[in-house]
């Protein structure tokens, strides 16, 4: 200890401004939380009630618009077969999403490492992205053959899910703090160390944002591909919807639709939860502000 001895404030350490408080505060169910959950539920109940009453009162025929109660019955009755179909579609979705994740991240890393590769390949990634998947589906089906529809679905869902991961990941890898890159270089970090310790963590928020979009798109891609490749007798949820339509079993169609939406919401929530878990300790987006 030297210089500070004569300083008026003999108190040792810290700065006068203290650390901000955040995140760890216990979660309380505030009025706004109740409103956020309660009001939509209330609206939903009102809507379903009105639907039930109006369809009954106006005598609308069941194949045009079934009553919610009939849809509920159909849902229970066909639950097993519908869930099996949904599971088929979800398997396509998950595998396509997984491959899009691996492929998108890998290609993004390659792009950021090599400008030449990026210049060479990026336009094709864009072309793949902007061409509507419905339009590509027939040719993919021809290539895979009608006896291998699963592979066609996988390819089509993958095409749709791939791009958000790629473009977000490229952006994320590029957004590493320039001063931090300099700091790493100063300490003689290798390219691998810069990637592993700096660029990958920096890109995490972007990647998770891309995954949230891509997860939903993978499901949409799978369903659209099923519609296009429908040939009767197959087992995806979209095929159940077409089949129900053909037989005018509209309530079963609605039941399938409900399961499909529920699956989509679940995927979104899981990815949202993952995002929160991964970022809650450090990222601005997860910061709980007191004011």
């Amino acid at each position: 200890m030297t210089a500070v001895d004569t300083a008026p404030a003999a108190v040792q350490p810290d700065d006068l401004d203290s650390a901000p408080v955040f995140a760890t505060a216990p979660k309380r169910w505030t009025e706004t939380t109740w409103a956020r959950v309660g009001i939509p539920i209330l609206i939903g109940i009102l809507f379903i009630g009105l639907w039930e009453v109006l369809v009954y009162a106006l005598g609308i025929r069941r194949f045009v618009l079934p009553r919610p109660s009939m849809i509920a019955v159909a849902l229970v009755e066909h639950f097993g077969s519908l869930m099996a179909s949904l599971w088929y579609t979800l398997k396509v979705t998950f595998v396509a999403f997984g491959l899009a994740l691996v492929g998108g991240v890998a290609l993004a890393i390659l792009f950021v490492q090599s400008r030449v590769i990026e210049l060479a390949l990026f336009p094709y990634a864009v072309i793949l992205q902007v061409t509507p998947v419905v339009a590509i589906a027939p040719i993919v089906l021809i290539w895979t053959g009608l006896d291998n529809v699963y592979l066609a679905l996988l390819i089509l869902a993958w095409i749709v899910a791939f791009f958000p991961i790629l473009s977000n990941m490229v952006l994320g890898l590029r957004s590493a703090d320039h001063n931090l890159i300099n700091l790493f270089q100063l300490y003689g970090a290798s390219r691998w160390q810069i990637l592993r310790r700096l660029q990958l963590p920096s890109s995490l928020p972007y990647l998770l944002g891309g995954m949230k979009i891509s997860g939903g798109l993978a499901l949409i891609g799978a369903v659209v591909a099923e519609f296009v490749s429908f040939s009767g007798g197959e087992s995806g949820i979209a095929w159940r919807i077409i089949e129900s339509g053909n037989r005018l079993e509209t309530e079963r169609m609605f039941a399938a639709l409900i399961l499909l939406s529920a699956a989509g919401v679940t995927i979104f929530m899981v990815l949202h939860g993952l995002q929160h878990l991964a970022l809650r300790k450090w990222h601005e987006s997860a910061l709980k502000r007191e004011n």
Binding site: N179, L183, F184, Y187, Q193, R197, L198, L204, W282, H283
Partner: peptide, 21 residues
């Protein structure tokens, strides 16, 4: 600017130069 890695703790931030070595 402090130029810290926001995803790393204070310990890991200070440890960085040694880790890179």
């Amino acid at each position: 600017e402090p130029t810290l890695m926001p995803w790393a703790t204070v310990f890991d931030n200070v440890f960085l130069p040694l880790r890179l070595a």
